[in-house]
C-alpha cells in the first residue's frame, strides 16, 4: 500500500464525489486553475470542467449564500473557504440559513452543503490563518462538525459528509495536510459521528481532535515510558458527538484530559468535560482537565509553540489527575 498525504486523500475524495454524483459542485477562491492554495482541488477543474469546479469572486458570504440557492436548485455544493480566519464573513449565511433552512421549511427542504475550511495553527502562518473556529459551529444547532486527523479518515469522512443530507462544516487541520498514512483511497463506509480509539490505555484518557491528535499520541508514548497507560480518543466529529465512545473511555480509565488548540473559555473542551461529568461522574478518579490554547488571540508565528498545547503541558495535566 502506498503512502498518501491528507491533502492527496482529500483531493481523492473530492474527485470521487464529483465522479459518483453529477450534482456535486466545487467552488471557492482559487479552487479552479490553481487547484486551491493547499492544492486540495488540484486538477479537478481540468477533469470535470468549469461548470462543476469554478472560481468565485473573493467574497465568503457570497460563496456560502449561493450554496443555499444552489441546494434549492437540487445541487450538492461543496464550497471551500480559503482559511479559517476568512470564514467569519459567511457566519450570517451559515447560522441564519445553512443551519436553519431545513428547520424553517418544517423539514421539507434539506441543505446538503459541505463547507470545507482549512483550520488551526502550527504551520507558522500569517495572522488570521491559524484559527480554530469549531466551537462557533458546534454551538449552532443544525450543523454537523467534522474534523479528521488522518488521511484515510479525511478521505472517508469527506465522502460521508458529501453524501449527508444535512449541512456539514468540514474542518481540515492544516498541520495535518502533509501527514502521511499507508492505505488505499477506497471508501470504507465510515459514517460521521464516530470517535476512534487510536491507542488503548488504562490510567487515563486524552480526548482530542484535529491537529492535536499526533501530539496526544506522542504524550501517551512518553507517559508509557513512565509506566502510565493513556488512552487516546480522536473525536473526529464534534457534532454529532460520539457520546457512547467518550463515556465508555471515561468510565474505563476514570481520568480524562481534553486537549485542543482553540482557547479554553467556552471551547468545545468545556462541552466534553460537561458530558463526562454528567454521564460518568461516579467513575471519575479526578477532576476532568483541559489543556488548550490560551484565552488570547492566536499569537504571531514565532510564538505559536508556546501557545499550542505541548507535551509538557499535556503530561503535566495527566500528572495532576494521577495525584487524586
Amino acid at each position: 500500500m502506498a503512502d498518501v498525504t491528507m491533502a492527496q486523500a482529500l483531493n481523492g475524495a473530492l474527485r470521487r464525489a464529483l465522479a459518483d454524483d453529477d450534482r456535486v459542485l466545487i467552488f471557492g477562491e482559487d479552487v479552479g486553475t490553481l487547484g486551491g492554495v493547499f492544492r486540495i482541488t488540484d486538477k479537478l477543474q481540468a477533469e470535470f470542467g468549469e461548470d462543476r469546479v469554478f472560481d468565485t469572486p473573493l467574497a465568503e458570504s457570497g460563496i456560502v449564500g449561493i450554496s443555499v440557492g444552489l441546494a434549492l436548485a437540487g445541487w450538492r455544493p461543496v464550497p471551500e473557504i480559503q482559511f479559517d480566519g476568512f470564514s467569519y464573513p459567511a457566519l450570517d449565511q451559515v447560522i441564519s440559513h445553512v443551519a436553519k433552512y431545513r428547520f424553517r421549511s418544517a423539514g421539507t427542504v434539506n441543505m446538503p452543503i459541505v463547507l470545507r475550511i482549512p483550520c488551526a495553527g502550527g504551520i507558522g502562518a500569517a495572522e488570521h490563518h491559524s484559527e480554530s473556529p469549531e466551537a462557533y459551529y458546534a454551538h449552532t444547532a443544525g450543523l454537523k462538525v467534522v474534523i479528521p486527523s488522518t488521511p484515510i479518515d479525511a478521505f472517508n469522512l469527506l465522502l460521508s459528509s458529501i453524501r449527508d443530507p444535512d449541512p456539514v462544516i468540514f474542518l481540515e487541520p492544516k498541520s495535518r495536510y502533509w501527514s502521511k498514512e499507508s492505505g488505499e483511497l477506497e471508501p470504507n463506509g465510515l459514517p460521521i459521528g464516530r470517535a476512534r480509539v487510536l491507542r488503548e490505555g488504562e490510567h487515563g484518557t486524552l480526548v482530542t481532535w484535529g491537529g492535536m491528535v499526533p501530539r496526544c499520541l506522542q504524550a501517551a508514548e512518553a507517559a508509557a515510558e513512565d509506566g502510565v497507560s493513556l488512552e487516546v480518543l480522536d473525536l473526529r466529529c464534534l457534532v454529532p458527538l460520539d457520546l457512547e465512545a467518550l463515556i465508555a473511555s471515561a468510565r474505563k480509565t476514570g481520568r480524562v484530559v481534553v486537549v485542543h488548540e482553540a482557547p479554553m473559555t467556552a471551547g468545545f473542551g468545556a462541552e466534553v468535560v460537561a458530558r463526562v461529568v454528567e454521564d460518568a461522574f461516579e467513575y471519575l478518579e479526578a477532576p476532568v482537565l483541559r489543556v488548550t490554547g490560551y484565552d488570547t488571540p492566536y499569537p504571531p508565528a514565532k510564538s505559536e509553540e508556546y501557545y499550542l498545547p505541548d507535551l509538557d503541558r499535556i503530561l503535566g495535566a495527566v500528572q495532576r489527575t494521577l495525584t487524586f
Partner: peptide, 20 residues
C-alpha cells in the same frame, strides 16, 4: 428576515437552474 441575505440565495438558485 435577515436583510439582503436571500439575494444570494436567488443568485445561487438562478446559477443552478441555468446549469440544468
Amino acid at each position: 428576515i435577515p436583510i439582503a441575505t436571500h439575494a444570494l440565495h436567488a443568485v445561487g438558485w438562478a446559477m443552478g437552474t441555468r446549469k440544468d
